[in-house]
Amino acid sequence: MSGISVKELYKTYKGSAEPTLKGLTFQFGEGRIAGLLGPNGAGKTTTISILCGIVRGDSGEVKIHGLKQQAAHRESIKHIIGIVPQQIALYPQLSAVENLTYFGNLYGFKGKALQAKIMHYLELFGLEKSAHKEIHKYSGGMKRRANIIAAILHDPKLLVLDEPTAGVDVQSRSMILQFLRDYNRQGASILYTSHLLEEAQSLCEEVVIMDEGKMIVQGNPLALIQQHPDCKNLEDVFLHFTGNALRD
């Protein structure tokens, strides 16, 4: 069964002359770590937004764990999916515990069970000592880690991360990537976007390289490198398909 299936997806934003997505098509299997890669303006964030149901596509079909992304299944999909946005989607004036308690309550969790879960994840992400510190006092890496915890409180089967390691130190990045591998081993699917292609090469079992709203190539990173003898790594493959022209 496919974890994510996207077929002929089109999207043009109001006021924009150019479509952002032009018949995007790809598929990832359930329980895999997948990477959605592309230069700026390729349409990665729009694709993730449509997958999550925050933005509606103009046409095409999107399925998450077999459920069509449409009004009838939107609530069910929200139970399946956990999203880690690029921004730190937490209240800076509140502590990690206060933030996580609030979002846990919104998921319907409460009481000691919720607090135990929060403390478990804070320990796992090395934030237990700063549990009651306001988020705006956290370092960049700590904020990223807290941002991930808020997305996994409901144990989603599909975790979508938009550049989760942007601007963090090596230790935090290593910790986050290790967590993603461990979480995947527990059976969850992971879809991840990044501009750090070395990181994507080491983490992902499968990648989609997209540009100008279309899928350019899909496959296992190592297989893609082998298919192109002039490419030594995923970055070379990426440049091979997307070119060296600068993007806005």
Binding site: I54, Q87, I88, A89, F103, L106
Partner: peptide
Amino acid sequence: REDGSLLRMKLIPGSYLAI
């Protein structure tokens, strides 16, 4: 809206009206 917490709230199952 800017810091993304609105987005997070909308991604959580249940009515946004209650929030």
